[in-house]
Design a protein around this nucleic acid. Structure first.
Lengths: 110, 110
DNA sequence: ACGATAGATACCCTTATGGGAATATGTCAA
DNA sequence: TTGACATATTCCCATAAGGGTATCTATCGT
């Protein structure tokens, strides 16, 4: 079985470093493809291809305006990644770590 | 240029769905490989191979204890993913969204 | 209708992947 | 020392990837 397709889910789409840069380049507002091309300095087909992957997993959405296409980042999908990582929060949050240790101590009956 | 190696960074390592399951299977404490094998029900070499990738990017660390190897999730690396996603928080947090809109309105001088 | 502009798509190539099965390495116990 | 146990490593395979370049499609202005 080959590697999971990049279009499988947001995790795979975002694995490619360039696609993370594309998301940052879009930023908070809508962005036209050529704007992204200019700000990243990459060939236009390269940007379009990465946008296609991001769109397929729902990380961006598109709106047509004449001959332009306006891309926008879909926060909800990024939240999925955020929330997954957050389930491990106790592993880096020292505050939560102390709470956990206290609970374990109590559970051991000390 | 082929796809970025899975060992490039935590993002690529975690793209593989099975590796996310491995991290969850390890959980909060140290876990022996056979424990993970049992709880996931996968062939042992498969688990070992996924652990190797996770280790190479620093998402887990290992400690040897006799013939066993005790794996532990490294929160700091997961935090990197969490923090990256969090930079887009304003895109899904309605509270922040209102603040942003107010700022834009003000910037337009209304 | 025509050229220019914005963007997507197709094609070719090189390469690392993940699974499976078998085997190697290292450590314990008697 | 010998075998059992825990884990890592090797080999083989089919597959999809991202980059480059060229080209297609759609829409605008005149």
């Amino acid at each position: 079985m080959p590697r999971a397709p990049t279009t499988l889910d947001p995790f795979n789409a975002v694995a490619e470093p360039k696609r993370r840069l594309v998301l940052q380049a879009i930023g908070d507002d809508e962005r036209q493809v050529n704007d992204i091309v200019d700000s990243l300095g990459w060939p236009q087909p390269m940007v379009s291809k990465h946008l296609a992957v991001l769109k397929e997993v729902g990380l961006v959405s598109v709106r047509r305006d004449g001959r332009r296409r306006l891309y926008k980042v879909e926060g909800s999908k990024l939240k999925q990644i955020h929330d997954w990582a957050k389930t491990f929060e106790r592993l880096w949050d020292h505050q939560l770590q102390r709470i956990k240790e206290r609970a374990e101590k109590k559970a051991r009956g000390q």
